[in-house]
Computed example of a mutant assay.
Amino acid sequence: MLFDRPTDDILYEALLKRDAAYEGFAWVCVTTTRIFCRLTCPARKPKRENCVFQESIAACLEAGFRPCLRCRPMLRYKGNDATVTALLEALEREPERRWRESDLLAMGLDLSTVRRAFKRQFGMSFLEIARLRRVGLAAETLTGGAPVIEAQLDAGFESGSGFRAAITQLIGSAPRHLRGKGLLRADWIETPIGPMMAIADEHALHLLEFADRPALPNEIRRIRERTGCGIVMGRTPMTDQIERELTRYFDGHDDGFETRIAGHGTPFERMVWSELRRIPTGGIRSYTEQAKAIGRPGSVRAVACANGANQIAIVIPCHRVIGADGGLTGYGGGLWRKRWLLEHERRMAAGQRTAEAAE
Rank of each mutant, 00 (worst) to 15 (best):
T143F: 05
P175G: 06
L105Y: 12
A350G: 03
G145P: 08
G145V: 08
A357K: 10
E209W: 04
A165L: 15
G351S: 01
G160R: 06
C51T: 05
N80S: 12
S274G: 05
A262S: 12
L142V: 05
I312S: 10
Q54P: 01
A146M: 02
S161L: 12
K292F: 07
I129D: 04
A21Y: 07
A26C: 12
G180S: 11
V303S: 08
R5F: 14
A86E: 13
R347P: 04
N218E: 14
G332V: 01
R346L: 06
D19V: 08
N310P: 05
L178Y: 00
E101W: 02
Y77G: 15
D81R: 01
V321Q: 11
T113K: 04
G326S: 10
I171A: 11
A146V: 00
T266A: 05
L109P: 04
R133C: 11
I279N: 10
E245M: 07
I149H: 09
P46E: 08
S102N: 03
G182E: 13
H177T: 07
I189M: 14
R224P: 02
R133D: 09
V148K: 07
H203G: 10
V315L: 03
F126W: 00
T113P: 00
E89R: 15
M348W: 06
L69Q: 15
A117I: 00
R98S: 10
I10F: 01
A204C: 07
I167F: 06
T329Y: 02
I294S: 13
H206L: 02
R339L: 13
Y77L: 13
C71A: 12
Q169L: 10
G295Y: 05
S299F: 12
A20L: 06
F157W: 05
E101L: 07
L88E: 09
E209Q: 15
E94S: 08
R260H: 14
G295F: 05
S56E: 00
G298K: 12
F126V: 00
A26V: 10
D187V: 02
T247S: 09
A304K: 15
G24I: 14
A174R: 02
G182K: 11
E225T: 04
G144E: 06
L207Y: 05
T113S: 02
I231N: 02
N218W: 07
S286M: 07
G108F: 08
Y77M: 13
G145M: 05
C318E: 15
A26L: 10
N80M: 13
G156F: 10
A14H: 02
I57Q: 13
A204G: 04
R244C: 10
I231M: 03
D187I: 03
N307M: 08
P67W: 11
L87S: 09
E128H: 10
E13G: 15
L91Q: 11
G298M: 07
G308N: 14
L16S: 12
A293E: 13
F118K: 00
R260I: 08
V52Y: 09
T227E: 05
R244S: 13
T227H: 01
T191Q: 14
R116V: 02
T259K: 03
D4L: 12
G308I: 06
I294F: 07
R93L: 01
R72F: 12
W188C: 03
T288M: 08
D4E: 14
